[in-house]
């Protein structure tokens, strides 16, 4: 019993550390990719190739003045940044990095992921409300409607996968993909998942809640110092976690592509695939312009929803009659 507790705590610490490492160097990667795509170099001065830049950014944010808006709704104002980080960190509990490396093999892991990750909308809504300012409020409202629309697409595209596998456990989902990755069996679900995930993360081209050109900074306009850092931490942690889940669901988790290079351990493959999806999100952000809000909602309800529902229907036929 005691051994299990200690082992679990050690696992949690390691998973948390790896996630935070990914988050820190996610910001670095973001800046390097942004620079590269715009023919610039990106961070360069802190350490070799600017590798200590995330550390410097963190220190800077620590020493900034922590402003609390006088007429804000205080409890909400303090809770919102916490809510931004916690759900993303909770999700790592169910992510299987290798066949036997995971914090817990929850049999409802996918439901847990959906339930927990949709909590982060509260951070944005409450953060937008608590600042007692019009731009954050507008950002928060936009975020709420965007989340509700894309949450459905995200959930339904996961349902397509769960129908084939017949289990909500992420470990079972990956084991199912031993011979063929899910992305080849469910390409439409994969595309829908990626679009919905990017929209859920408030990333460009769907970053309407924090559209700088019209809403100043969006929902975190009234936050400063570590509270602001918490929102950013949450955003990047959500990105990493979404990439990890996408890897589990569609890219065969820890399995090497087409069974080549079997000597590389599974968790390395997992991290590589997660990073590739993460990189894809950065690539998308620095390529496409922001969509208009009605286009965003229209795409969710008029395009993605019917497509993913049709996909579920076809998958259902295959599952029922195909065997």
């Amino acid at each position: 019993m005691l051994e299990t507790v200690i082992l679990t705590i050690a696992k949690i610490i390691i998973f948390f550390a790896v996630l935070m490492f990914f988050v820190a160097y996610g910001t670095y990667a973001e800046r390097k990719v942004a620079g590269g795509i715009q023919d610039r170099i990106g961070p360069l001065h802190c350490g070799p190739f600017g590798l200590l830049q995330p550390l410097a950014d963190g220190l800077k944010l620590f020493f900034k003045e922590d402003i609390t808006v006088a007429k804000s709704d205080k409890p909400t104002y303090y809770i919102a940044p916490i809510l931004a980080v916690v759900p993303a960190i909770l999700v790592i509990a169910v992510i299987p990095v290798d066949e036997n490396i995971m914090i817990t093999d929850l049999n409802i892991a996918l439901l847990y992921f959906l339930a927990v990750s949709s909590l982060s909308v509260y951070a944005i809504m409450l953060g937008g409300w608590a600042g007692n300012s019009k731009y954050p409020l507008l950002g928060g409202l936009r975020s709420a409607s965007q989340f509700i629309s894309y949450e459905l697409v995200l959930g339904l595209s996961i349902v397509c996968v769960a129908m084939l596998v017949g289990s909500f456990s992420l470990r079972d989902v990956v084991l199912y993909q031993k011979d063929m990755w899910m992305v080849f069996k469910q390409p439409i679900a994969f595309i829908c998942y990626m679009i919905a995930a990017i929209a859920e993360l408030n990333r460009a081209p769907f970053d309407l809640p924090e559209a700088e050109s019209e809403l100043v900074g969006g929902y975190h306009t009234e936050y400063s110092s570590m509270k602001f850092a918490m929102f950013f931490l949450g955003e990047y942690a959500n990105m990493v976690v979404s990439s990890a889940i996408a890897t589990c669901l569609f890219l065969g988790g820890w399995y090497a592509p087409f069974s080549i290079l079997p000597f590389i351990p599974g968790f390395i493959w997992f991290l590589i695939k997660t990073f590739l999806i993460f990189f894809f999100m950065l690539w998308i952000r620095w390529t496409y312009p922001r969509v208009r809000f009605d286009q965003l909602m229209g795409m969710s309800w008029k395009v993605l929803m019917p497509v993913v529902l049709l996909n579920i229907l076809v998958t259902g036929f295959i599952v029922t009659f195909g065997r």
Binding site: G36, I37, D39, I41, L44, I284, T287
Partner: peptide, 20 residues
Amino acid sequence: LIKGLSITIRHLFGPKVTIK
């Protein structure tokens, strides 16, 4: 959309204009 992505990836690995 794919054309846009291919342009940006070429710039990512292309020459940089920054003067340090």
